[in-house]
Design a protein around this nucleic acid. Structure first.
Length: 422
RNA sequence: GGAGAGGUGACCGAGUGGCCGAAGGUGCUCGCCUGGAAAGCGGGUGUACCGCAAGGUACCGAGGGUUCGAAUCCCUCCCUCUCCGCCA
């Protein structure tokens, strides 16, 4: 959520920066709602002040017959207050509803653009893998080695589900264990296990609701949502809390399955593991002081890149343009890994600075020192990494001409020492 | 699923209609004391909104009701805990 006062005082700038995302945001409703709210509030509060004063007087008067006139008058005042409060409630509801649907302001340094076409490549690591033979797509590798079974997963659940087994299942486990072990080394990140089902307040806190309910798996009774990313439960750990500023930054990592409807992705990536309704991901989440968030984003990005470097997988980093950046983010760097079968870089991590946008929604604050005013923290998160897509990258980049797949060195201790599959 | 208890400030906990934004304690913090510390003594210590300001308003789980006036009374909902049942 944006800061109400900042919005009020910088309406044109906010409109310009929000429109750089693509759509056309019209803030004229905001102006009228905000004005109306303040007028109603002012009138209601003046009447309440009077009522409080007169009521206190009535309380002190022993002989109530002397104040019958005041009591009768306050009855009318209370009735009027009730009307105003009712109207105010409606206006505030509309205003809050509007505020919750406004996306974050992209940082001024974000490349201006309409779509992912306009993202800016900021670095590359390694060279696109040269296999010297026609690369197989990971779904063929997986089926040929009998380590991924798409057909039976479809029978069990439906399209966009998969099932790994044997060395495939173990490779997936090796990957997320390696990621967690790396991130938690030297207490860089604290590992957490969280609920995978969450309530509405939690989904609203990070920005999935109210706008993106259609993308979420939902249960009616009780009213729960399956998490689309560990960002949601982990960021909400400190919802409605005031943190001790000396404890910041707080860095968490979590491995969870993620559940997404992929409602708007019909026909895209229909084969293989790239776009699934359920996938594993290791997430990195930080709560930091506002002045540290730029530097912490750099570090978070480096931590995610470190996994790909350890796995020796070629990748590039792109600075997302204003048109491609997510709803809650102010700045995002995507990491894209090289996939030989597609001859393309594909997203494997997204690292974002949300500044105080989520913190304001979820009311996550900190005190610099005992007695000082609470301030909103900045929140950040990034995938470190998407496990399913990392599995894809390993299978495709480490495939051999004979159909086998070599195990990246750093994973071998996790794989019982074997050096290849097949 | 059945029965019961309860939700008050950073934490514990008092408070059954006006003198309650809320006693007391703990914690934190400032000062005194001390060679230094502990103990002791004294002071301070909620958040949000409106307002140029003075100031005002709201908040004792949430929402509604009664009343001139509600943390306190009534209703609905949510959540937590205990016991029983079931269970990885």
């Amino acid at each position: 959520m944006l800061d109400l006062k900042f919005l009020r005082e910088n309406l044109d700038e906010v409109e310009r920066r929000l429109n750089s995302r693509g759509g056309t945001v019209d803030l004229s409703d905001f102006r009228s709602l905000d004005d109306k709210r303040r007028a109603l509030l002012s009138e209601a509060e003046t009447l309440k002040a009077e009522r409080n004063q007169v009521s206190a007087l009535i309380g002190k008067t022993k002989d109530k017959s002397q104040v019958q006139g005041e009591i009768a008058r306050m009855k009318d005042v209370s009735a009027r207050i009730k009307e105003l409060d009712e109207e105010l409630r409606h206006v505030e509801e509309s205003l809050k509803g509007l505020m919750l649907t406004l996306p974050n302001l992209p940082d001024e340094v974000c490349p201006i653009g309409k779509s992912e076409e306009d993202n800016l490549e900021v670095s590359t690591w390694g060279e696109p893998t040269q296999l010297g033979f026609e690369p197989k797509a990971h779904w063929d590798i997986g089926e040929d080695l009998d380590i991924i079974d798409f057909e039976r997963a479809t029978k069990i659940a439906g399209a966009r589900f998969s099932l790994s087994k044997g060395a495939g299942a173990r490779l997936e486990r090796a990957l997320f264990n390696f990621m967690l072990d790396t991130h938690t080394a030297e207490d860089k990140y604290t590992e957490v296990q969280t609920p995978l089902m969450v309530n509405r307040d939690t989904m609203t806190g990070t920005g999935q609701l109210p706008k993106f309910e259609a993308d979420l798996f939902h249960m009616d009774d009780p009213d729960y949502f399956l998490i689309p990313t560990a960002e949601v439960p982990v960021t909400n750990i400190f919802r409605d809390e005031i943190l001790d500023g000396t404890q910041l930054p707080i860095c968490y990592t979590a491995h969870t399955p993620c559940f997404r409807k992929e409602a708007g992705a019909h026909g895209r990536d229909t084969r293989g593991l790239i776009r699934q309704h359920q996938f594993n991901k290791v997430e990195l989440v930080k709560f930091v002081r506002p002045e540290d968030s730029d530097a912490e984003l750099e570090k978070l990005l480096a931590d995610a890149e470190g996994i790909l470097q350890a796995l020796k997988l070629p990748y590039r980093v792109v600075d997302l343009c204003t048109g491609d950046i997510g709803f809650s983010a102010a700045r995002t760097f995507d990491i894209e890994v090289w996939l030989p079968a597609q001859q393309a870089y594909r997203e494997i991590s997204s690292c974002s600075n949300f500044r105080d946008f989520q913190a304001r929604r979820a009311s996550i604050r900190f005190r610099r020192e005992a007695g000082s005013k609470p301030e909103f923290v900045h929140t950040l998160n990034g995938s470190g990494l998407a496990v399913g897509r990392t599995l894809v990258a390993v299978l495709e980049n480490y495939q051999q001409e004979d159909g086998s797949v070599v195990i990246p060195e750093v994973l071998r201790t996790y794989m019982g020492g074997i050096e290849k599959i097949g």
